[in-house]
Design a protein around this nucleic acid. Structure first.
Lengths: 215, 215
DNA sequence: TAATCAATATACTCGTGAGTAGAGGAGAGA
DNA sequence: TCTCTCCTCTACTCACGAGTATATTGATTA
C-alpha cells in the first residue's frame, strides 16, 4: 500500500481515480473549505440572514444536504468563517507582540496588516458579523477573541506613549477610533477596484496615524 | 366648532375624550412615531431580519395589523427610520456649510455632531442598515443621501487644506477614515454607560483630528 | 462476495414571519 | 338616529428556509 502510493507520487503513472486514505481526507478538507469560502462570500455580500444554505449550495452546484454532510448547521458555517478571520488577526497580533522597534512603528505595522485582513473574505466576515446573529455561547467566545485583538492594540499604544513615539492620547478611545477607521473598509472596499488592499491599508493608516492637523 | 376648541384650549375644562380633527391627526402622527421608535430600537438591537413586526407590535402592546394601519410594510418601517437619521445628518451638514471659521474648525464641529447623531436611535440605524436589506430602489436613494453627507465632509477637508488649517491629506481616504472612526460607536456605544454621546464624540474627534504621532 | 462506509441526491417536515381578510366597536357628522 | 370613517383585533394564507429521512451509488474492507 505504501509502495503503491510512493510509486504514484513519482508521477510515473497518470492520476488514478482510486484515492488513498490521506487523499480522501485532503479532498474532504478541500470540499469543506470550498463550502466555507462560498458561504462567506455570500454572507458578506447579502448578509447572514438573507443568505440561505440552498443559495450557497447552488453556487457550488451541490445540494443543501451536502453542506450538512460537511458542517453541522448554518451557525457552524458562520462560526468557522469568523474563526478563520480571527485566526489571521491573532497571528498578526502575535507577530506585532514579538516585533522590535518603537511602539509607533510596531503599531503602524500591525494596523496595516489589520486593515488588509479586513479586506479579506474571512476577515471581512469578522467585521460584518454582529454577535446578535450568533447563539449566546458563540457570541461570548466571539467577543472574547475580538477583545484579545483589541488588547494588543491598546498595549501597543501604551508602549508607544511610554517610549515617547506616540502622543499621550486616551488609549481606550484611540483604539476605538483606529478600529473604526480600519474596520470600515470591510463595508466599502471593492476587491475589483483599482487599489489593492495593501494600498488602501497604507493610505488609511497614514491618515489615522498623522491626523488632520498640520504639523 | 371653533368656539368649542378655543374654549377647551383655555384649559377651563378637564381634558375631553372627544377629539378635534387636528388632535386626531396629531395622535395618529404620535402613534406612527411610537411605532418607528419601537421598531428602530429593536432593529438596532437585534438586526432588521431578526426582528419581526410581531415583536415590535408586542413591545407596544398592540397587534401587527395595527402597524400595517400606520405603515405600508416592513421595509417602509425601516426606510422611515433611516430617513429620520439621514435628516438629522443633513441638517448638521447644512449648518456646517453655513458656518464660519477655518476648515479645520468647521470640520471639527461637524464631526462632533456627526458622531453624536451616530449614537442616536435613528442615527445608529443609518449606520447599522446595510443597503442589501433594502429593495434596489430604496438602496439607491439611501446610498445617494449618504453620498451627500460624505461630499460635505470632503468639501470641508478640501477647504481646510486650502486655507492651511488642515494638513495636505488624501481627501478621499481622510473622509473614509473619519467616517469609519465616527460610525463605529453606532456598534459599541452603550447609551446606559457613564459617558454621554457628547463626551464620546469629543474624545473620538480629538483622536482622529490629532492622530497618534507626537506633535 | 458480502457488508460497510462515504458522498450525494430527492423529497419531505415544520416553524416562523410577512402580509391580508374581515369583523367589531367607537366617535363624528348629517 | 343612521351612517361613515377610523382604529384595532382575531384568525387566517402563503412563502421561505432550516434541518431531516431516506435512497442510491460507488468505493473500501473483511
Amino acid at each position: 500500500m505504501l509502495a503503491a502510493k510512493e510509486f504514484r507520487l513519482t508521477k510515473l503513472v497518470a492520476a488514478s481515480p482510486f484515492r488513498t486514505r490521506e487523499e480522501r481526507e485532503r479532498e474532504r478538507e478541500e470540499k469543506r473549505e470550498a463550502v466555507l469560502l462560498a458561504a462567506v462570500r455570500m454572507f458578506n455580500a447579502r448578509g447572514y440572514h438573507a443568505t440561505s444554505l440552498d443559495d450557497v449550495a447552488a453556487s457550488l452546484g451541490i445540494s443543501k444536504p451536502t453542506i450538512y454532510h460537511y458542517l453541522g448547521n448554518k451557525e457552524q458555517v458562520l462560526v468557522e468563517c469568523v474563526n478563520r478571520g480571527l485566526a489571521m488577526l491573532r497571528t498578526a497580533a502575535d507577530e506585532a507582540a514579538d516585533a522590535s522597534g518603537t511602539g509607533f512603528d510596531r503599531l503602524r505595522a500591525f494596523l496595516c496588516r489589520y486593515a488588509q485582513i479586513n479586506m479579506d473574505d474571512f476577515g471581512r466576515c469578522v467585521i460584518l458579523t454582529n454577535d446578535e446573529v450568533l447563539s449566546m455561547d458563540s457570541a461570548t467566545r466571539f467577543r472574547a477573541r475580538k477583545r484579545e485583538i483589541d488588547a494588543v492594540v491598546r498595549a501597543l499604544i501604551a508602549e508607544g506613549i511610554a517610549d515617547g513615539s506616540i502622543a499621550p492620547v486616551d488609549v481606550r478611545f484611540a483604539s476605538f477610533a483606529l478600529a473604526g477607521a480600519l474596520n470600515w473598509p470591510a463595508r466599502w472596499h471593492d476587491p475589483d477596484g483599482t487599489l489593492t488592499p495593501e494600498q488602501v491599508a497604507e493610505k488609511l493608516v497614514d491618515v489615522v496615524m498623522n491626523g488632520m492637523a498640520p504639523r
